[in-house]
Design a protein around this nucleic acid. Structure first.
Lengths: 182, 182
DNA sequence: GCATGCATGTAAGGAGTTACATGATTCA
DNA sequence: TGAATCATGTAACTCCTTACATGCATGC
């Protein structure tokens, strides 16, 4: 049976430790969110499907009255996760509205380009900040690969912010030249 | 009336010159594709909606028998495009399966991590190649911002490929150390 | 005559978000 | 007592992809 992309996030998270749907959502939001998100609308139905396929199993935990189902991988589920991890990744996608605006920015004498670049720079800087806030949360017991992924996120967005900075500077210089020539 | 994301790609492309739906698709595939794609299933229905909203108008071009509708912006459409360009961009998204695998790669002694990194590197290198192939196509009459966007794509993917290279080297070094210690 | 490219479109379905609904528990 | 958090879930919707259907035109 084919599994959806979200299914693998769930299997991966449950591979770390047994968790409730709520736990999974919170962990995703505090870790993979910037390159792979998941909403309740995906998580809860998918947990059912995975349980139906025998890849995970849920244990009801009364835990002082509040009802809560903790899910964990079955042997099949763990096998499935291992297989997926060993395969070559496929999906790599970006959607960047700022680049789109930059692409179309001819015709306003550089004004739209400058504002798109400035906004894009702010976007990346704000992502860097949010990722830096996550650093202490990951720092403890987690795998070195989780740290590595976080570094990637930070460095990649720093790179992008600096690229914007350079582009803004070059654009300003060209416009000064343009004015002098005119 | 709210416009869909795809609507703005179409307005933007028609802002350059009048085009058929087929032209738009081809141009998107040869330019914005890596950060903003569009399929026929979006383009043709959206062209109708935009025409219905009075933002574009279609001109039938018999052009030696083959039927073809060339769409162009109306005054309203051009206004709408200018307004959108002046607004701050919002959407910035990534989906990167290789990072997800890296994140979950504890437990196989670095094997899954190494293969995810190698695959991610190849992905970025192949994107760089494809973007370099586009360079001559953009080089002629197009706006300097289109060149800028293409440079961004190339440099960003080069950066990512190099990051993977470094991570692979560090991982290999750690494993040598690990073996020596054991 | 046939493959390729031009050209327009639809149907079905997958993936994902948002908003809502519900209710218990904990802590100030 | 009231706000925040824990916890589960669904419905409606948007967005997008894939696959298919159709047919003309061009060039080998």
């Amino acid at each position: 049976m084919e599994l959806s992309p979200t299914a693998y996030v769930i299997l991966g998270m449950l591979g770390m430790r047994p968790m409730s749907g709520y736990d999974i959502k919170r962990l995703v939001d505090n870790s993979t969110r910037f390159f792979w998100a998941a909403s309740y609308g995906q998580i809860y139905p998918e947990l059912r499907r995975l349980a139906g396929a025998g890849l995970i199993e849920g244990v009801e935990e009364p835990e002082s009255g509040r009802n809560r189902t903790v899910h964990r991988l079955t042997a099949d589920g763990r096998k499935r996760l291992r297989e997926w991890l060993a395969e070559d990744p496929e999906t790599f996608e970006m959607r960047d509205e700022a680049l789109l605006k930059l692409f179309f920015a001819a015709g306003s004498g550089g004004r739209d380009a400058a504002s798109a670049l400035a906004a894009k720079r702010r976007q990346h800087e704000s992502i860097v900040e949010r990722l830096r806030d996550l650093e202490p949360k990951v720092a403890q017991g987690d795998s070195s690969f989780q740290h590595l992924v976080l570094s990637y996120g930070i460095e990649c967005n720093e790179w992008a912010a600096e690229w914007c900075e350079r582009a803004i500077a070059e654009l300003a210089q060209e416009q000064r030249k343009g004015r002098k020539a005119a």
